[in-house]
Amino acid sequence: MDGIELMAGAMHAAQARLDVSASNLANVSSNGFRRRVAHATLSARGLAVSTTTAPEQGPLERTGRAFDLSAIGGGFAVRGAHGSVGYERSASFTLDANRHLIDERGNLLLDARGGLLRGGAGATIDPLGVVRGDGEPLGRLRLSSGTRIASGFLERSNVDAIHEMVDVLSAQRAFETAEKTLSAVDETRAKNVNDVARVKG
């Protein structure tokens, strides 16, 4: 691998870091969002960037609505618009016309047996996910193991705008550094080709 390829790889890596930071910044107001983290690894084939999701919980904001749910340390099961089952960390559910619980992304809340949970006015949800309406159990949320439910809370995005701004800056500077180095390598080669090899006549 030569200098130009290496530096081109470094420029790609800086661009990938900026992509991640810019998307994190864009999601500073998305409830339940967890920031993505870019990792660069150097190998014989140059720099490669992979991304993971930061695990730390975002701040919980009290809303007081029973069906604003946040999972602490796991997730609760929902059925997506195309029938696929997934787990969510935080969502705001309202009753739909069939008294099922639907969130703003169109996901339906599942009960422990895999059916759709039905809610009612004045329902409460305890930390273990048991839903009660007027004291009578209505069902139980399907939770991943070890999950506790905070009813009446939404998890805010865990993006720290200052941290992301610093990342944007540092990605930009890393890009510039790589570009300068690439240009220097290019100029050295230009000298090799045009000056060193010139036959004095």
Binding site: L18, V28, A171, Q172, L182
Partner: peptide, 26 residues
């Protein structure tokens, strides 16, 4: 909060644009 977040995102746009400019000058 929305104003500050807007500014932060605007800086993201600027940074992306600036990197594009540098790449174009290669």
């Amino acid at each position: 909060a929305a104003q500050r977040a807007y500014e932060a995102n605007a800086k993201g746009v600027q940074a992306a644009d600036e990197m594009q400019r540098i790449a174009n000058n290669l």
